[in-house]
């Protein structure tokens, strides 16, 4: 079904401009010290950066807002177009779909947003510090959970249509037949870049155990190593909030039998505490270990799905400078 189309960057920007009213468009733009999704207004279109690795915000936030009233229904949202999601974040949707769309307890809020969103994934033409998707079997270009894959090269935008939803969307934006078919030449250029980024990733992450090996490594590890690495942990929970697959939440009650679903994390004290006061995760190193056991052992066993996509945001975000990959490398020796 895959089809490739080509359009000049100039015309692509015009198309985006037309879409602004119909869709809520989000895309990464560069800020002073990071790059992140922005709600795109007319002036922002030329600022969108393409083929860039992970925006600061993980994709999950578009489907599971940090805070949301899940009883008092909000007005139905505009259809959304999210441009520039890297493949690590897209791969993370596997797990989210399994958790939030599982019968019989389908989360209608999540479901509606998933249906209502057109995901335009992007090939990473460069890497950022701590990127290690390829170590966990994820390619640095979109393979799943997206509608269109987009690359911008030499003033040309190439679209690869990868779902029915993507196809319908493409038909909508191509009503003037402004797109041409992409030639072999363009596709080869993209491929070359993909190969070189993949190589770069395997070079920088040499010796890092793969996903399932990591699970085996940490399964029965003595507590010393966890205590060692948790020493500088301050339980701030940044690792969990920034993680594309951490979606644990808290339900907060509000008058009128309303409930607020708020993003939570097992790194916060009291996460598993029961009414009588007992808390299995009372000790900090146990909470710290819990997150990794969850990511590499329990979640994959339970959902047959990867729960760390190698985006490396948790390493970047850590106030205590904890690098999980150093921990895994140490276990390997």
């Amino acid at each position: 079904m895959t089809q490739y189309y080509l359009i000049s960057k100039e015309n692509w920007d015009k198309i985006l401009n037309e879409l602004l009213g119909k869709y809520d468009v989000y895309a990464p733009v560069a800020a002073e010290d990071n790059q992140d999704y922005r709600f795109i207004l007319q002036d922002d279109i030329h600022q969108i950066i393409y083929n860039t690795p992970k925006p600061a915000t993980p994709l999950k936030i578009f489907f599971l807002p940090v805070k949301e009233n899940v009883v008092k229904k909000s007005a139905s949202e505009n259809p959304r177009l999210i441009i520039g999601s890297p493949s690590c974040d897209l791969a993370g949707l596997d797990l989210l779909d399994k958790i939030y769309l599982e019968e019989p307890f389908v989360d209608k809020f999540y479901q509606q947003r998933r249906e209502n969103t057109i995901l335009v994934g992007t090939s990473c033409f460069s890497t950022l510090e701590h990127c290690h998707c390829s170590s966990y079997g994820i390619k640095p270009f979109p393979e799943k959970n997206h509608d269109i894959s987009l690359s911008v090269l030499d003033g040309q935008v190439t679209l690869q249509i990868n779902s029915d939803k993507g196809k319908n969307f493409f038909n909508e934006i191509n009503h003037n037949n402004s797109f041409g078919e992409a030639e072999k030449q363009e596709l080869e250029k993209i491929d070359t870049l993909r190969v070189s980024v993949t190589k770069e990733l395997s070079k920088t992450n040499q010796g890092l155990p793969d996903y399932s090996k990591t699970g085996e490594l940490i399964k029965d590890t003595k507590k010393d190593i966890w205590e060692k690495y948790a020493k500088t942990c301050v339980s701030c929970g940044a690792c969990a909030s920034i993680c594309p697959t951490c979606t644990c939440f808290l339900l907060i009650d509000r008058p009128g039998f309303e409930k607020i679903r708020q993003l939570d994390g097992c790194q916060y004290p009291g996460f598993e505490q029961v009414a009588a006061g007992e808390d299995p995760l009372e000790e900090r190193f146990v909470r710290f270990r819990n997150r990794y056991l969850c990511k590499y052992v329990w979640k994959p066993e339970k959902y047959e799905s990867i729960a760390c996509t190698g985006c490396g945001r948790c390493i970047e975000a850590c106030i205590g400078n904890i690098n999980k990959n150093e921990l895994f490398r140490e276990l390997l020796t």
Binding site: I99, Y100, E102, F105, D107, T247, C248, F249, L250, L251, D264, C266, F271, E272, Q273, V274, N290, L293, C294, V297, W298, K299, E301, K302
Partner: peptide, 21 residues
């Protein structure tokens, strides 16, 4: 098993017991 069950739906993660919710 007594755990801190919060959502009841197998989603919020508070009652994780190894690979069980």
């Amino acid at each position: 098993m007594e755990k801190n069950m919060s959502c009841g739906l197998g989603k919020c993660g508070h009652c994780m017991l190894g690979d069980y919710l």
